[in-house]
């Protein structure tokens, strides 16, 4: 049985960096469980001696010449950024400041 508990979904949401509301946790644990029940049907197939496919048209060693091609300018790369400072992406702090919360 592939029932996904509300606690498991809370954990997954943390791993995926998506805040889910109480309502979403209630609703989606049911929805995702139902989908998991259905897709778990793949486990009925005997795949013991089968190799997995990660790419439908097999290619090996795709290289390119080691030459510089056109790249985005610093200005272009920053045009879509939510916050910029001194020509760089401005990122929120990684840790809470001491004494903070």
């Amino acid at each position: 049985m592939s029932d996904l508990t509300r606690d498991q979904l809370t954990h997954l949401a943390q791993l995926a960096h998506v805040n889910l509301t109480e309502e979403e946790l209630d609703r989606m644990s049911g929805e995702v469980s139902k989908i998991l029940d259905s897709v778990a049907k793949v486990q009925e197939v005997d795949t013991k001696h089968v190799m997995p496919t990660s790419h439908p048209i097999a290619l090996t060693n795709v290289y390119r010449d080691d030459v510089v091609g056109p790249v985005l300018s610093q200005h272009e790369a920053l045009t879509g950024a939510p916050e910029v400072e001194a020509g760089q992406f401005k990122v929120p702090a990684i840790l809470h400041a001491e004494g903070d919360r």
Binding site: L12, A13, L15, M28, I35, V42, T47, T53, S54, P56
Partner: peptide, 25 residues
């Protein structure tokens, strides 16, 4: 959420791995 579950330690072979093998078949 589904993908994070299907790739998570302890489940990845039973879900994502099996799906990739079914893809081969």
């Amino acid at each position: 959420m589904l993908g994070t579950f299907a790739l998570s330690a302890g489940y990845v072979d039973a879900y994502y791995g099996t799906a990739q093998r079914v893809r081969t078949l």
